[in-house]
Design a protein around this nucleic acid. Structure first.
Lengths: 212, 212
DNA sequence: CAGCGCATCAGGCACTCCCCCGAGGCGCGG
DNA sequence: CCGCGCCTCGGGGGAGTGCCTGATGCGCTG
């Protein structure tokens, strides 16, 4: 039960090498040497994993991902590239790839990476994952700190967080090791300070601020 | 030249176990059993890596990260948790942790994870990384239309929409020109069909599906 | 020390939520 | 016509919510 794979790379020699090395461990059911060919082959073959070169003519792996990604939710894309540049990694991941490895990888490691991606995991070459996390942390579109939230005490902020997530007073009390009555007090203070009248509005408030 | 580590976990027995298992492979230079203690110990010891429990009183690992993260750019935080919930993973990573592993991990794997984080890598338990990527991408890989929603009648869908937006039964009744009792019936049917137990979960359900 | 903010907890009360039961009307297809 | 799904309501009740008053202790500051 090895995973089915389609190789996409504009260098035939490289595809041949990958096929030779990986043939024992995964089931290579198709190859493509261009963006257009990749779209056709992947659409037809429906592999578990597409091993996708990033740098190719006509838009490269990014073009393939944008054309196919949304249409094939059950197909995972693993980017395979000579580049270890942060912008390449981020662009590919943002487009929906489930991993990014560089071509310095060994055959064993690549076979393992393909298997893991087929299995639902996410795979990165060491250090590359850090690029994504950095971009992820910078990404909050609206940092936009409300003046109201500054009026909250640390404990109130904690209760707010749990309230917004839908926990009942009783559950919050258990998690924070305090009584229900204390939770009620904090909750009441939070609602008053944020000028809200009930916890449903509070949930929407938190959603708007991407706290969930 | 093993990495220096501070353990933060509110269970002394667990810390002891980690220390015993990891002692040979990393240099455990401090421990903390609470958020306040963690802030003090980490600030003093300046370890390479902080092994951080997510669920603790007083805000847990998140509180530690928010207090210390910005101040200690050279210290890496590796979250260690019993939870494999997406919200926990995303919150911790957004707060600046460089990895997240569950407590089901073996001692060898944990030692390896610590070493890799100390070395600048990012480490995740299998599958957890996917949560971060999903949150990172605007378009979730799994649009995954639920079969449950097809079971809802048109009227139930209408009530669901208003419920998720935080309207009270009374308000929904006014908007739809029906009695509160009818709203209750629809709401009850919706919760049953979606296998949810209250409207807070329903709000989160709707948020997850971009219905708001 | 006296005041103040914060966190903790209590009793009580009106209200909402959610479920249990039951019921009638309406339209559609066998 | 009869069953069935859908929508419409009602009583009753247990659990949860939100607010009120009032209380204690703790640490910080003037």
């Amino acid at each position: 039960m090895s995973a089915t794979v389609v190789l996409v790379d504009d260098h035939a020699m490289f595809r041949s090498g990958v096929r030779a090395e990986l043939g024992q461990r995964v089931d290579v059911i198709g190859e493509a040497g261009s963006v257009a060919e990749a779209i056709a082959v992947v659409t037809e073959k429906r592999p578990d994993v597409v091993l996708l070169d990033v740098h190719m003519p006509e838009g490269g792996g990014l073009a393939v991902l944008e054309a196919l990604g949304p249409a094939l939710p059950d197909t995972r894309f693993l980017a395979l590239s000579v580049s270890d540049a942060a912008e390449d990694v981020i662009a590919i991941i943002r487009a929906g790839a489930r991993g990014y490895v560089t071509k310095t990888i060994s055959a064993d490691e690549l076979a393992d990476a393909v298997a893991r991606v087929a299995d639902g995991d996410v795979v990165f070459s060491p250090r590359l994952a850090g690029f994504v996390l950095d971009a992820f942390q910078d990404s909050p579109v609206a940092p936009a700190v409300d003046p109201e939230i500054d009026q909250l005490t640390p404990r109130e902020r904690e209760v707010l967080r749990l309230l917004a997530r839908g926990y009942a007073y009783k559950e919050i009390a258990s998690q924070l090791f305090i009584s229900i009555k204390t939770v009620e007090t904090h909750a009441s203070n939070v609602l008053r300070k944020l000028q809200l009248s009930n916890r449903h509005q509070l949930t929407r408030w938190a959603v708007d601020r991407r706290m969930l």
